[in-house]
Amino acid sequence: MIEIIDSSFVTSAPNIRLTPENEYQNEVAFMARSNTGKSSLLNTLTKRKSLAKVSATPGKTRLINYFDVVFADRETNERLSAKFVDLPGFGYAKVAKSLKTDWESNLTGFIAERKQIRIFVHLIDCRHPDLEIDRSVDAYLHEICSPDQVIVTIFTKIDKLNQKELSELKKRFPGAIMVSNTKRRGVDAIVEHLYRLLKSDEQ
C-alpha cells in the first residue's frame, strides 16, 4: 500500500520568477477549472484538513502554492519525496479582465517553463466533461509536454453521477482516474499512480 505520510506548506509564488529552486524533477502540478474540488482533493490526498485552503469563493486563489510531500510504500518501507504544486484555478469569469489576462499568462508561462514538473494533473468536473476550456487546457498540455513529463487526467465528484453515467464516462476516457473526494473513491488509486510515475523517474 502506498500512502502519503507527511506534507507541509513550503511557499507561495505569484509567478515563475519567484518559485523555489529545485534541482529535481519531482513536482506534481495540480490544475483545474475553478470550483472543481482541487483544494479539497489535495487535503484528502495528504490527509490534512487544511493544507490547501478551500475557499467559498471560486477562483480566489491566485498564487502558485508549493507543498512538500513524502510517499511511503508500506510493503518495502521505501520513502519518496516530492512537491505538490497547487496552481490557481483557471477560467473564472468574475475575475476582472485585466487581472485574468495577467493571471493566466503567468500560469501558462509557468506550466511551459517549469522543467521541474514531472506530472501534470488535470482535474475535470465529471458533470461537465466537454467544456471548451478543459479541452483547451488538455490541448495546451499535450503541446508543451516534454517526453519526460506525464499528463494525468482525473474526473472529480463522481458521486454526483449515476452508474450508467459513470460507465459512459469511463468508456469515453479509459485512461482517466475517477474520484469522489467526499466518498474517498479513487483517492488511493491517485496516490499509488503518482508514486509509481515519480518512482519510475528515479530508475
Rank of each mutant, 00 (worst) to 15 (best):
P88G: 06
R79G: 01
K49Y: 00
N162W: 08
D68C: 08
L99H: 04
T61K: 09
V179G: 04
T76E: 09
E132M: 13
T36C: 13
L87V: 05
K171I: 14
S105Q: 07
K157Y: 03
I154D: 12
I111N: 06
L63E: 15
E165D: 13
E3R: 13
R135H: 13
A139N: 05
M31I: 15
L99K: 09
L63Y: 06
R127W: 03
S50T: 12
R114Q: 06
S12P: 14
H128W: 03
L87P: 02
V85Q: 05
F9M: 06
L80Q: 00
T46Q: 06
E168Y: 08
V95I: 15
S34M: 08
G175T: 11
K183A: 14
H128C: 06
P58D: 03
Q163P: 01
E132R: 12
N65Y: 05
P147N: 11
Y92H: 13
I119D: 05
I151M: 06
E192S: 13
P14A: 10
N22Q: 03
H122N: 15
Q163R: 15
T182P: 00
E132I: 08
K115V: 06
D6I: 01
N22S: 09
S39G: 07
L197C: 02
K97S: 12
P88S: 09
T76W: 01
P58Q: 10
D125R: 04
E165I: 11
K94T: 09
P88E: 10
K83R: 15
F173Y: 15
M1R: 07
R79V: 08
K94M: 04
L42C: 01
S34I: 12
Q149T: 04
L18H: 12
L198R: 03
V137L: 15
I64Q: 04
R172Q: 15
T108A: 04
S12A: 15
D73L: 01
E104D: 06
